[in-house]
Every structure is written in C-alpha cells, then in structure tokens.
Design a protein around this nucleic acid. Structure first.
Lengths: 127, 127
DNA sequence: ATTTGTGTATTATAGTATTAATACAGTAGG
DNA sequence: CCTACTGTATTAATACTATAATACACAAAT
C-alpha cells in the first residue's frame, strides 16, 4: 500500500483532456527532479480513485509517457521514472517548458488591459 | 468588406477546443473595452478562413456568446457586442477573470522548481 | 497456493469537436 | 432585380475523450 503524496491535480472545467493534464504534470515534476529516475509513481487505481476518474484514463497517460521515454513499466509492479534520457534539466530548459504558459498569460493580460505591473503583482500575491 | 484587424489567435496543440479559445478571447476583449458595446465582430467566414478553420466552429462560438448575452445578432448583418450587461469592468473584475491562469502558471512553476523571482523575471522579459 | 497488488486489453457506450458540402433567410448597394 | 455580404440549418462523416464492467498476465508476500 505504498502510496506517495503525489498531489496530482485536475481542472475539470479547463477543457484540457485529463490524460493530458496528467502527462504535463509528470513531465514538469521529472524535469525539476521532484521525481527522480527510479522513483515509483502512484498506481493507476490510486490516482483514478483520488481524482474520481476512470482508471483507463490514467493508464492512457502513463502509456503515452512510457512511449515518450519519460516512464518505464515493470510487469506486475508499477511505473517508475525512466533512467535513460532523464538527466537533470537546467534552469533555462525548465523555463523553456514554462514558456508557452508565459506567452499565454501575457496575451490574456493584454486583452484584459492588465499591465505588466498589475500582472506580476497579482502573481506575487497568489504565489 | 469591412473587416477589422481583430487578430484572433488559436493554439492548435493546446488541447483546448477552438470555439472555447475564441469565446474566452472575445470575453476578455469585451471586459477590457477593447471591444465596446455596439462594435461589430469580424464575420464568421473571415475568421474561419483566417484561422483555417471550419465556419461552423466560429458560428458555434458566436452563438454561445450570444446565448450568454455577450454578443447580439442582427439578421443579414453581423454580430456586435451587446449593449445590455456589458458595462465597463473594474480592474478587480478583470483580474478576477485572469486569476485561473495565474493559479495555473504558479502551480506549473512550482512543479518546475521555478521560483517567484524567476517567474516574474521571465514574464517581464516576454511582455 | 492464495491473496493482493501492479498495468493492460476488451467491448461497448456516450458525448464532444471538427470538418465537409449545400442550402436558406435576411440586409445592403448598385 | 441582382449581387454580395451577413449568420444559420442540415446532414454526414470522422476523430477524440471518457466511462463502464470484466478479464488477463505478472510480481510479491504470506
């Protein structure tokens, strides 16, 4: 019953598919070494019940992450972070991963007539 | 042939439905009065060809915005920003609209081990 | 051997998103 | 009237997302 407090979160109303939200989160956690090579991931069924979601949705996310080389599967055991290809990523590389979200929020702010200072201020307040 | 330079943007790989991306953009532009009550919107066909997307997708977005009271339809003419219910929104209200994106990018940054200063710095650089 | 835990496969169903090709009703200008 | 422009309706097809209920193969511990 070894389950980790891996606090996956899903925004139901965001319009983004659940399996995609999950994949992105795992990738970020791996990139930052919050999940290190060899670390086990919470079981499909645990995540599914925790998020009130169908197990196959989680399985799909894990399978795709395995296909991308981010995770590895061990028969009868579980999924773990792959060793190969998962070296520590630099700050620049991690910022690069975040960049699309940065571009997106800036576009939104401009459409809302929210200036740079108001935006950063709001982020500081919510951080 | 009156078409406005309304620079709608769509991110195809984001996973978010096109009609939803469009609706959100219009709402933001209305909230900030970049689009004022009475302002005409670019035609379904213009937007569709500009975004290389099916006209019905745009029509769906417009129809839903009409159902929400954001837009009004004029037979044979086009869509325009609704007068009722679209008063100028305060800074606080506009920040509230942006808040979900703020929360989201903060969560992403934390998963990537990107601190507050690095985040705001990146935003300043990209703004 | 049994139990309990892995991930996965199967089959079916449902809802949503998007495209395609037409066609229609209304408005405006020549 | 004719043309060109609006948004919309229809019908069809395709793809994706998610759920449901079972069942299977493997590993580990008892």
């Amino acid at each position: 019953m070894t389950f980790e407090l891996l606090a996956f979160e899903v925004a139901p109303s965001s319009g983004i598919p659940i399996y995609r939200q999950l994949m992105d989160q795992v990738k970020r956690l791996v990139a930052s070494e919050h999940l290190k090579p060899g670390d086990p991931l919470p079981s499909v069924r645990n995540v599914a019940t925790a998020l009130a979601v169908n197990p196959m949705t989680i399985s799909k996310a894990y399978s795709l992450l395995e296909a991308e080389g981010v995770l590895e599967r061990e028969r009868g055991k579980g999924m773990k972070v792959a060793a190969t290809k998962n070296v520590a990523k630099s700050t620049e590389q991690r910022l690069e991963i975040l960049q699309p979200s940065v571009d997106s929020i800036i576009a939104e702010a401009k459409q809302l007539d929210i200036g740079l200072e108001q935006l950063t201020q709001q982020i500081e307040k919510s951080f």
